[in-house]
Simulated scan of single mutants.
Amino acid sequence: MCQFRPETAADHAAVEAVHRAAFPTDDEAALVAALRESDAFVPGLSIVAEADAGIVGHVLFTEVSVSGGGRTGRDAARPDAALTLAPVAVSPDRQGEGIGSRLIRHGLDACREAGYECAVLHGDPDFYSRFGFEPAAPYGFSHPFDLPDADFQVLWLTDEENDRIGGRVTYDAAFLDL
Rank of each mutant, 00 (worst) to 15 (best):
2 C>Y: 03
2 C>G: 00
4 F>D: 00
5 R>N: 01
6 P>L: 12
8 T>L: 10
10 A>Y: 11
11 D>A: 01
12 H>G: 08
12 H>E: 09
12 H>W: 02
13 A>N: 02
13 A>D: 15
13 A>S: 07
13 A>L: 10
14 A>T: 05
16 E>I: 08
17 A>Y: 02
20 R>G: 07
20 R>Q: 13
21 A>E: 15
22 A>S: 14
22 A>W: 10
23 F>I: 12
24 P>A: 10
27 D>M: 14
27 D>E: 14
29 A>H: 09
30 A>R: 14
31 L>S: 01
31 L>W: 12
32 V>Q: 05
36 R>M: 02
38 S>W: 13
39 D>P: 09
41 F>K: 03
43 P>L: 04
44 G>N: 11
44 G>L: 13
45 L>H: 05
45 L>N: 15
46 S>W: 06
51 A>N: 01
52 D>W: 03
53 A>M: 09
54 G>H: 12
59 V>K: 00
59 V>W: 05
59 V>M: 02
61 F>H: 13
62 T>H: 10
63 E>R: 15
65 S>K: 07
66 V>Y: 14
66 V>W: 11
68 G>A: 08
70 G>F: 09
71 R>H: 11
71 R>D: 13
74 R>G: 01
78 R>F: 09
78 R>Y: 11
79 P>D: 06
80 D>T: 15
80 D>E: 07
81 A>L: 07
81 A>K: 06
82 A>K: 00
84 T>S: 02
85 L>F: 03
85 L>M: 12
88 V>L: 04
89 A>R: 08
90 V>Y: 06
94 R>I: 03
94 R>A: 07
95 Q>N: 14
96 G>W: 02
96 G>V: 11
97 E>L: 14
98 G>L: 14
99 I>A: 08
100 G>I: 01
102 R>N: 10
103 L>Q: 00
104 I>N: 03
105 R>S: 14
106 H>F: 07
108 L>P: 07
109 D>L: 12
109 D>P: 10
110 A>H: 06
113 E>R: 13
114 A>C: 11
115 G>C: 08
115 G>E: 10
121 L>I: 07
121 L>K: 05
122 H>E: 03
122 H>F: 15
124 D>M: 02
126 D>G: 10
127 F>I: 02
130 R>L: 06
130 R>N: 09
131 F>N: 00
132 G>D: 03
134 E>Q: 15
134 E>W: 07
135 P>K: 13
137 A>F: 12
137 A>K: 14
138 P>Y: 07
139 Y>W: 03
145 F>S: 09
152 F>S: 12
156 W>Q: 07
158 T>H: 08
158 T>G: 03
158 T>S: 15
160 E>C: 00
162 N>I: 03
164 R>I: 10
168 R>C: 10
169 V>I: 12
169 V>F: 15
171 Y>R: 04
171 Y>M: 11
172 D>C: 08
172 D>S: 10
172 D>N: 06
173 A>W: 09
174 A>P: 05
175 F>H: 15
